[in-house]
Design a protein around this nucleic acid. Structure first.
Length: 456
RNA sequence: GUAGGUAUAGCUCAGUUGGUUAGAGCAUCGGUUUGUGGUACCGAGGGUCGUGGGUUCGAGUCCCAUUACUUACCCCA
């Protein structure tokens, strides 16, 4: 049988893991630096926890898990009917699927907060680094299994949290040396727009269409709006939004004109101005930024790489005022961001941003080479001594007289020192250690060897 | 779901208007080298040309179908 893995999933070898961990370590360090605490949640959730939170499209992209032992069911007639119905339209049947793989980390987090509300100190700041699954068509930069790295704070309305997150994002990308644009907008503006053009029920269609401005241009957006039943009059009102390019301040001016006399508009503009005035990081107000997820209600974020061919977003996030409400805990506003490290990896690979050290990081500091079972055994006890001193090392596992083969192995694993042990060395307790880079060899007793490697 | 592209050795790919026994580089293994690697030279193994059918004296090459992968649309990290 030919081995394979499901489409959209990947294996990661040691070289790739080295780079992935380089990114993860920087992100995790910053999460902790800003006072977020780690949690984990299960890979699968009850399907009812997930459905209805991600929009119509989103629901269809949830990986569903078929119930086990359906052949033992006592209600096969019901099962058959549910199955028939599922063939006709996208729907959820708990008879068939009670559980699903998590689609993001935010909704499980909201569930977690509600379930553990009495143990948590609010405002609660958590970070979470785990894979999520989406039943999407894979393509460039889009995977069916990928990692999200989320930081969220819940139980606080303060815009300080937004500022904190912006600063965290800015710091992380500058440490990774990835050139980015941090864009933001506010969902209150979008609802205000829907209000002033008298199409409040079409808010999702409007936001999704506007979000595509970059890709399909003004004409494309107008066409899509019309197709979604938005009146010509309303579309005309939206034009200033689509046509305008300029500074952040000028954009705020446009917004004031368009939605400044609505309640939601006023509030949104106020929040936007606060962030623009107080953020120390460079941020760009993008009045066409909408984002698809249903649960956002206030500030929304998106980060894209500023160089290279990679156009999809590498980070997203925003404020959600009532995600926990559906689970029975109202009035819990939260805000969070999510790093897409798989895409960050792709950007960094394309722009050659990984430090050289991640390319050939040594598997160990030293390898022992030997000739027979006696010398190998001797190496094993020497290795134990080095490891007690916290020096990483390994003993060549096979018995062979061919030193070339053993040296080659060390080379391929980028091990910088090789210590060859034969009968002379065992007798004199003096060990020859070769620096694989320089090709020089020095002799040490065990104490000096440890000193030498420690210093190095 | 819709539309395009690709499929030949473990990997990356050549393969002429359809013509003898399908090639290269890298990788692997062996040798030059039984106590010192990266280099060099010599050699070896490894293929049902994705699968099934068709056209033809003859198909890796042309046609049809099918599967997998991939890119774009939709949506998203």
């Amino acid at each position: 049988m030919k081995p394979s893995i499901p489409r959209g999933t990947r294996d990661f070898g040691p070289a790739e893991m080295q780079k992935r961990q380089y990114i993860l370590n920087i992100v995790r360090k910053n999460f902790e630096l800003f006072g977020y605490q780690p949690i984990e949640t299960p890979a699968m959730e009850n399907i009812t926890t997930l459905t209805g939170k991600y929009g119509e499209e989103g629901d269809q992209l949830i990986f569903k898990i078929l119930n086990s032992r359906i052949h033992e069911s006592k209600n096969k007639d019901v099962l058959k009917k549910e199955f028939e119905l599922s063939l006709e339209a996208s729907r959820n049947s708990e008879e068939l699927t009670e559980r699903a793989l998590r689609y993001d980390l935010t909704v499980p987090f909201a569930r977690f907060v509600v379930m553990n509300q009495h143990q948590l100190t609010f405002p609660f700041k958590r970070y979470q680094i785990q894979p999520v699954w989406r039943a999407d068509r894979p393509q460039k930069g889009r995977y069916r299994e990928f990692y999200q790295c989320d930081a969220d704070v819940i139980g606080s309305n303060s815009l300080i949290n937004e500022l904190d997150l912006i600063s965290l994002v800015d710091k992380s990308f500058s440490q990774l040396k990835v050139p980015v644009i941090i864009k933001f907008n506010n969902r209150k503006i979008l609802s205000a727009i829907a209000e002033v053009i008298h199409e409040p029920s079409k808010i999702v269609n409007i936001t999704v269409a506007i979000d595509k401005l970059d890709k399909i241009g003004k004409e494309g957006v107008n066409k899509e709006l019309a197709e979604n039943g938005i009146s010509q009059e309303a579309i005309q009102k939206l034009q200033p939004l689509l046509e305008f390019k300029g500074t952040n301040a000028q954009k705020v001016g446009i917004l004031k004109e368009l939605v400044g006399n609505t309640e939601a508009g006023k509030k949104g503009i106020e929040e936007i101005e606060f962030l623009l005035n107080t953020s120390t990081a460079e941020i760009e107000l993008d009045i066409t930024l909408a984002r698809g997820l249903n649960y956002y209600t206030g500030t929304i974020f998106e980060v894209k790489a500023n160089e290279g061919t990679f156009s999809s977003s590498i980070l997203g996030g925003g404020r959600y005022d009532d995600l926990t409400g559906i689970f029975g805990l109202p009035n819990m506003s939260g805000v969070g961001i999510s790093f897409g490290i798989d895409r960050i990896y792709d950007v960094m690979e394309e722009l050659n941003l990984f430090p050289a050290s991640t390319d050939k990081s040594p598997a160990a500091t030293l390898m022992f080479a030997h000739f027979d079972i006696e010398s190998q055994t001797h190496c094993v006890s020497l290795a134990a001594e080095l490891r007690n001193k916290n020096i990483s090392c390994e003993v060549y596992p096979d018995i062979t007289k061919k030193l070339g083969k053993q040296f080659d192995y060390a080379n391929k694993k980028n091990i910088p020192f090789v210590c060859t042990v034969g009968s002379n060395e065992m007798q004199n307790k003096l060990y020859a250690v070769k620096n694989m880079d320089k090709g020089e060899q020095q002799q040490f007793n065990i104490t000096d060897l440890i000193k030498f490697l420690k210093k190095d």
